[in-house]
């Protein structure tokens, strides 16, 4: 290909110059191109990061009477905690992922400890065999009505009855449908929770189509509950701060 062939047809004329096959060596060109490719491959980001949007309240004082009180039957409080191994987050030997625990209670905090349900422990497990497990199962159970509708919309979308935009719009409307029984989740990251723990919790809200949730700091009552849980289950949850605020 790189040679320019010259026809040898016909008789050679006397005194005609000897014809040389012109050959261009492309090897250096390939070398250079490969270098350039390597450079571009190393310098590029093919995958763009995703964003997770959150809305937090402003720091202004809100008067008690102006606050929306959630119905006790709809409320779930999740206290997050991350296990530590020295000053590094503890890692599950099997999965290689950080161990996050969730201590949750439904409704108003039960400081009399009348039942075992004052605080229950769960973990972020995700799906197993396509069935929700761990905290996801509990949240899904609480948001059954919305999820049933959501699954319907999802099938419609997969069957191409509605477009992706329509699906997103309808799903959003469905998640905020006040005619359905919807939970109100309060996420309380404990002092030793890592950022990943918080993201996991917010993620569960999105997966389970929970539109009403807030992120707050644990209160004194939560500490009381955790202390009681520690004693009852012989566990250590409240540990000294791994990182002291600087």
């Amino acid at each position: 290909m790189a040679q320019i062939e010259q026809s040898d047809k016909g008789k050679k004329k006397k005194g005609a110059q000897k014809k040389i096959a012109i050959h261009v060596d492309f090897t250096p060109m390939v070398d250079m191109n490969m270098l350039l490719i390597t450079f571009f491959m190393l310098c590029t980001t093919m995958i763009k990061s995703q964003t997770l949007q959150i809305v937090l309240p402003t720091n202004e004082d809100v008067k008690k009477e102006n606050q929306n009180q959630a119905k006790a039957s709809e409320a779930i409080t999740m206290i997050l905690d991350t296990e530590y191994n020295g000053d590094k987050p503890a890692v599950d030997a099997e999965t290689g992922k950080t161990i996050h625990n969730i201590y949750y209670y439904e409704g108003v905090a039960d400081t009399t400890f009348s039942t075992d349900k004052y605080l229950r422990k769960e973990q972020f497990i995700g799906n197993q065999n396509r069935q929700p497990q761990g905290i996801r199962k509990i949240l899904r159970g609480k948001n059954e009505e919305v999820m049933a509708e959501y699954e319907k919309l999802k099938t419609q979308w997969k069957n191409k009855e509605i477009s992706k935009e329509e699906f997103a719009k309808l799903a959003k409307k469905n998640a905020g449908d006040s005619n359905k029984v919807r939970p109100v989740v309060v996420i309380k990251p404990g002092p030793n929770t890592t950022y990943e723990g918080l993201i996991n919790a917010v993620d569960e809200m999105n997966i389970n189509q929970i539109s009403r949730y807030s992120i707050e700091l644990p209160t004194h009552t939560d500490t009381v509950l955790l202390r009681h849980y520690e004693q009852a289950h012989n566990e250590t949850i409240i540990r000294p701060l791994v990182r002291k605020a600087k």
């Binding site: 990061s49 995703q50 964003t51 995700g126 396509r130 997966i207």
Partner: peptide, 13 residues
């Protein structure tokens, strides 16, 4: 918040 992508079935733990 900036995050990387993962699927719903993956364990979040």
């Amino acid at each position: 918040l900036m995050t990387a992508l993962k699927s719903e079935d993956e364990p979040t733990q």
